[in-house]
Each structure stands twice: as C-alpha cells, then as structure tokens.
Design a protein around this nucleic acid. Structure first.
Lengths: 201, 201, 201, 201
DNA sequence: TATGAATGAGAGTTCATTCAT
DNA sequence: TATGAATGAACTCTCATTCAT
C-alpha cells in the first residue's frame, strides 16, 4: 500500500521515482516505459515503487502533477511582469519561458508533454492569466469574444511550439515561429479591438 | 503471411478489419486496442487478421492510410472552390469540412486522430493548398513569412478544432471557434499585408 | 475425409503431395514444415491435402512408407548379388547403394532420414538380408552371436554413413569411411569365426 | 530479460527449470515440449522462466550444456583408468558408464539424447580420449587410419547403445551388445595392427 | 523499510483443420 | 472434385503487481 512520504528520506525517494518516470517516458514512450525501467533508473527496487505509489498509474499522475506544478510555478513567477508588458511581449516572453521549461532536464518534459495530452489545469491557468492581463489593460474589455481569442491563441501557441520543438528539421527557426505567433495574436486582438470600437461608436 | 485480397469477399473482410481497428482504437486507445478486440469487432477470427495483415502494426498502417486518403480526398474535392473564395471563407469552409470528416462513423476518426500524431502527409497537403490559394490571390505574395503564417494557422486551426470537438463541455460553440479562427487568420494576414505594403512604399 | 486414390489422376496428386512433403521437410525440418508449405510446393490447395490424407500426420506416414519402400526395393534388387559376393564387398556395395538413395532428389531423403528415426522395417529387412547371406555362406553359421554382430554392424554402418553425409566438413572421405566399415565388419566376423572354430575343436 | 541468479534461491529455481526441461522433452519431444509444461513441471510460474532465461531456446541451450558437462565429467573421472586398461575393457567400461548416465533421473537423459543430435563437444572429447589411449599404448600408433577407426567405433558404439536402450523389446541383452561392441573394436584394431605390422616388415 | 524473485493474466502470433463455394 | 478464406486453440513471451525475506 502506498504511504504518504512524511519523512525527508521518503520525499527524496518519491522525487527520484517521479524523475525516473520522466526519463523512462522520454526513452520509451508513455506505453513503452515499464515499472522495472523506472525502478532501475531511480535506483530503487521494483517493490519499493509500490511503497510510495498505489500503482504505475499513480506514478504517472504524480508526474503530471509535477509537470503542472512546474508550469504553474513558472506562470506565478511571471505574474508580476504582467502589469507593464505589451501584448506582443506577453506572448513572446511566455512562449520562450514555455520553451525553456520543456527543454529542462535534457528535454524530458518536451517528450513527456507530447505523450500526455495537456492538462486542463494548464489551460485554466493560462486563461486566467489572460483574464488578468485584460484587467490590467482594460481596453481589451471591449472585445466581445475574449474567451475564444484566448482559447485559440493559447492552444495554437502551445501546440505550434511543442510541434516545432519536436520536429527534427523544422522549416523555420524558433524565433520566427514566436515572432509569428506574437504578431498573430496582436494583430488579431487589435483587429477585434478596432471592430469593437467601431461597433461602440 | 499476409496475402493480397484478390477476391471480392476478401476485400470486404479487409475493410471490416480496418473499420474495426478505428472502433477499437476509439474505445481503448492506440495502445490499449488488442488484436482480439479488433477481431471481435470486425466479426472475424483472430487468425483472419493475419491472413490479410503481416501483423498488428500493418493494420495501423492501413488505418492511417485510409484516414490520410480520406483527408486528401476531401481536400481534392475542395480544390475547385479555392479560386473564388475569400480567405475568411476558405478557413471557415475547410474547418467545417474537417469537422464533418472527424465526426464520420460515430466520431471514430476524431478519437483516432487524437491518438495518431497527425501525418506529415496531411500537413504537406494543407501547406500546398495554402500555396495554391496564394497563387490565385497574388496580393499575398508580398507577405514575407507566408510559410510561418501558414504553419501557425494550419496547426493552430487543426489543433483547436480537434481539442474543441473532444471536449465534453466546451466553453464556446463550435461556430464561435470557427469564426474566431477565420477572423484571426484574416486579421493576421491583412496585418502582414499592410506591413508589407508599407515597407514596399 | 481422406479417400482412397482409385483414379489415376488422384494417384498423381497423392504422389505430388508426398514429394512436396519431403521437400518441405528438407527445407524446414520435420516440425518446421507446414501444411501450407506442402500445399504450395505440391501445387494443390491446402484443402485438397485433406481430400487425400486424414491429417498432416498421415502425410508423414505416407512419406515414411515411401521411403521404406524405396529402401526395400533397393534391397530387393540387390538380393541376387548376395550369392556370389564377399563379406567385404557386401558391406561396401550396400553402403554405396544406401548413399546413392539418400542423395536422390537433391538429398531430400538424407535430410528426411535425419529427422525420422529410422524404421524398424528397414532394420528387419537388413537383418533378414544378413541372415540370407549367412545361409549362402554357411561357415558363418558357426558364429554364435550373429544377431549381435549384424545389429552392431548394421546400426553402426547406417548411422556413421548418415552422419558423415550430413557433416559439412567431415574429417575423412566417404570412401575411407566405407572402407573402414567394410574392414571392421570383416575383421570382426573373421575373428568371431576363428574363435568359433577354436571352440569347435 | 534474463538475469544472473545471484542468490541461492535463484540457483535452485534455475536448476528446477533445467530439470523440468529434461522431463518435458522426455514426455513430449523437443518440439512438443512447451514453456507452460516446463513451468508446471518445475513448479514455477511461466514468468519465472523468463527471469532466468532469455527465451525457450536458452533453456534448451542450458539443458544441452548440462548434459554435455555431465558427459565430460564422466569422461574426466574415467581418465585415470585409461593407463592400465586393455582396449576391450576400455570400450566395455565406457559403454557401461555411458548407459548409467543415460539412465540417470528416470531415463530422461536417454530420451533427451535421442532428440538432441549429439553434440560435437562429446564427439571431440571421445576422440581425444581415444588419442590419449593410443599415446599410452603406442603399438596402435602404427595403425594408419586411427581417425576413421575411432570415428566408426565411437559413433557406432554410441548409436547402438542408445538405440538398444530405447528399444522396448530388444533382441539381445545389453551385456551381449556391449560384449559385441568391445570385441568388434578389439578385433578390428588388432586386424589393422596386424596389417600395419605386415606392411611394416 | 526495502527488496527482487515469483507470479499469471493477457498480449501478439501461428497453423492444422474445416467448410462454403 | 478442388479450393482457400476463415477459424481458434495453443503457442511464446511480457510486465504490473505481490509478498516472503
């Protein structure tokens, strides 16, 4: 039975297992990774896996939680900059932050992310961030379909970036991609803004 | 050993197996689906699978080919309309066509598509379509980063639509999403166009 | 259900199947050979195999019968020479005949023989031949353990020859082996004969 | 993946599996024996087979190694007697030793031996033994075709004995067979010796 | 607490045999 | 009569999970 890691030593082991999980998934894919592999990489016995986790699925859940937490932490750290940044810079900076995070630990996060359909938690957090940005930049309040805009830009951005990073020989540089996404978002928002102003008059 | 289906009866069986493959993947995921399951759904014995396919992977290859062929067929049929359609209508119509195709056969294509990382063939065909559209609408030739724009809009579009269709309770209607995507693409293209014109003067 | 091949055409098919059986066994071993393989080689459909044979085992039985018949036929043809031949020549000629038979049909008999532990029928026929030889050469009647001698020489001869023919790089020529076997048999028989004579006095 | 049995308990399991392999082969033949059967006989789960052996073939390899080792051990123990024994006794004693070994473990070795075409290692060891005997009994050095003689006597002896032991109702006793083989070998060797001497004069 | 040997359900695959055509 | 598509029992092998140590 899995037990809560109350002791410091246990916490270390749990971390090692989760870490090994990411490496195993990066090596063998989410279905190819085995408990034996995770045990070997983490340096504990297979039996010990089940001391800390109910089953294999629980390890994956913990991995996902860790990944989500890292993303949320990243967004939390970014929050202060939200106030004084242009929309173009917002998108640009977020995408570079996102890339950096995916490339941590030899890119295991990137490979993991391609296997694990991305969590609603991340989407929510990003949507919330977008809403905060709107609050700090009230002119966007006039735009009707902010939700749809955010949805499209967030999903489109995340997917394009992930796909680009995973591509062995991409047709453009990462900088070009980010610039394109930033300008697309900006021009879209501005167009909607102009429309809203016109309708407002 | 897999043998070519020369007889009419055999052709029917092969189709039934491929069809069952989509259903099985929709039910259990691409790694969860088993040969036994595919055999059961298609109403043939396990042995028959191996009369027509070298192994399980070969069934998946055939499934992918069928899916890609359907997409390409759809695009081919759409081609004639390319000449006389606005950019906004282009995006809109393509997205609705794409949705209809994904919802064929009780939505098995949709579920399949989420498991099967989408084929480079499809991306190529869409990129080619975009290039044809530019040829018919030469003003876009002035835009520098057409490749990046296309890449972003195509991937962003496909991903957003797929994600939306898969979402149990989406925050917006499909029509809203398509409208947003169409306007985003248009406003982005127009903004780039304006930029190009300015630089041109 | 297997039916007796009363018609000429059926006889031909049965022969083709048995022939194919030998080839299949030579190619894939007695356990590796499949009914499909035999059907393909013989040029009939798998279903037809079961028109003429109860099951796969029945084909093997027929093959064995054919092999044994060929051996017996060979021995029968040799019988007339029995009268006027020395012991050394008897052994020598028999071994060469045996080799020729094993190498018929591109050596399929040889490969088959290594898989099918050799039939008691063949041993019996050879023992009988030996007894006939003794009748024509009555001096050997005085030897007590003729049965044992025959048993040893026959088995030793057959096995050594088969093994030698199957060896990719044998340590001696076939002629040397045959000469050795012939002299061994002769010297053994003569020694026993001398012993018997001594005991007789 | 097969892992080395480091613990004492594991060693026991490996032995049990190999042992069960012999029994299974004795029961069902080398192609009829199944992994499940071996697992059942050895009293372990199927999975355990693959803890210690890469695959089924690896079990057969281990079995063969064990068998060969036992034969070689037997020959090694016999070696000291080589010096002071007559040719007739040499053959006699070796054949009895061989019989005893084949009848160990309820005769599983005998059945196994009939399925496993006998190893070149065994033949080599026996040939080497013969050569040693010649060294201790230099008169045989004069015989020309010692290689052929050894080849014939060794193969003939092993095969006749194996065949006799496997025969349900043999036509002679084992003692008679051994006596015959011993005398055959002796008389053959002596005849060649006489011939060599004559040629030498 | 930590281990890894042991487990067995279930995976993909094969092939002798059947039977509708 | 002759066929080969269809069958499914049984094979080898994997791996998440358990449990005696």
């Amino acid at each position: 039975m899995a037990r809560k890691p109350t002791q410091k030593r246990a916490k270390v082991t749990v971390d090692a297992i989760v870490e090994a999980g990411f490496i195993a998934v990066a090596q063998s894919g989410i279905h190819g990774a085995t408990t034996r592999q995770i045990a070997d990489i983490s340096g504990v016995g297979v039996g010990s896996l089940y001391e800390y986790f109910e089953n294999k699925e629980a390890i994956y859940v913990a991995m996902n939680q860790r990944f989500v937490d890292d993303i949320l932490e990243m967004l939390k750290e970014f929050r202060p900059k939200l106030v004084r940044v242009s929309l173009e810079d917002l998108v640009t900076q977020l995408l570079y932050l996102f890339r950096d995070l995916l490339q941590l630990h030899n890119g295991v996060y990137l490979k993991y992310f391609r296997y694990s359909r991305y969590s609603p938690q991340i989407e929510s957090a990003l949507m919330e961030l977008a809403m905060h940005y709107v609050m700090y930049n009230p002119q966007y309040l006039r735009v009707q379909n902010m939700l749809t805009i955010s949805y499209i830009c967030i999903n489109g951005g995340i997917y394009s970036v992930t796909r680009h990073l995973s591509s062995p020989n991409p047709n453009m540089t990462f900088d070009e991609l980010v610039e394109g996404l930033a300008r697309m978002t900006t021009s879209y928002a501005n167009a909607e803004l102009a429309l809203a102003s016109k309708g407002f008059e």
